[in-house]
């Protein structure tokens, strides 16, 4: 079944399409329609963008995903950005282990974790995220949440520096066109700056298990005791 309204609007590097049924591999091109039966895999440094009537999806480097429908995405590894201005957007996000449902409008990044779950990072949102154990969690702009486990539940949440994230994210900066929600992202950053109390000298990393999360410290090394 072809997604007649979704097509690849931008592609950089190598994007392979894999048919599970007959184990065939092909290469995706710009303007290709998205096939809901195929897996799409990006090589190192390769990225592509899918546009539809209601949304934009940007897939990052070293990602492996399937776009089952306009409202259903499976991501095995890597990361993607989703952007929609439509207030009634519905998107089911599934990773190797966990599932969550986004409702509302907004722009967010999904980043897969080693434990089979994923990070959900709303850049600007007016909506909710539902997991198996926690329905309709109101999203807070700039607050990273972990979606882990099966049945899925929400792990810890962390407010993160939105401006730094935007400056360093290739899903934002390595695409030729600006996101349609950039004005809203700008407001989210403005509000965060108004409320800012301080920044931790740390960076959030991966999660190898459901209970542990890597947090890398930086700055001056404390003196040996």
């Amino acid at each position: 079944m072809y997604g007649t309204e979704r097509r690849i609007s931008f592609l950089n590097g190598t994007v392979e399409t894999i048919d599970e049924q007959n184990s065939s591999i092909d290469f995706a091109q710009v303007n290709d329609q998205i096939d809901s039966t195929l897996f799409y895999g990006t090589g190192k440094g390769s990225r592509f963008e899918i546009i539809s009537k209601t949304s934009i999806i940007r897939i990052g480097s070293l990602s492996f995903a399937k776009f089952i429908s306009e409202s259903d995405v499976y991501i095995h590894s890597g990361s993607f950005l989703f952007c929609s201005k439509y207030k009634s957007t519905y998107l089911k996000i599934s990773s190797r282990l966990s599932t969550a449902i986004f409702k509302g409008s907004g722009t967010f990044i999904v980043d897969c974790l080693e434990n089979g779950g994923f990070k959900f990072i709303p850049l600007e949102c007016d909506g909710t995220l539902s997991t198996d154990k926690y329905p309709n969690k109101k999203l807070i702009e700039g607050q990273l949440m972990l979606v882990v486990g099966s049945p899925s539940y929400l792990g810890n949440a962390y407010d993160i520096d939105l401006m730094l994230l935007l400056q360093s994210s290739r899903l934002i900066n390595n695409f030729p066109s600006a996101l349609t929600t950039f004005d809203q992202i700008g407001l989210a950053i403005y509000v965060q700056q108004l409320k800012l109390k301080g920044k931790y000298d740390a960076l959030i990393g991966d999660a190898k298990t459901e209970k542990t999360l890597q947090i890398w410290g930086f700055g001056q090394k404390p003196p040996d005791e």
């Binding site: 480097s61 520096d161 994210s169 899903l171 965060q192 409320k195 301080g198 960076l203």
Partner: peptide, 12 residues
């Protein structure tokens, strides 16, 4: 840089 960006915790 990374695809998802640098994630630095902050206090609000």
């Amino acid at each position: 840089e990374s695809d998802s960006g640098v994630q630095r915790p902050i206090a609000l």
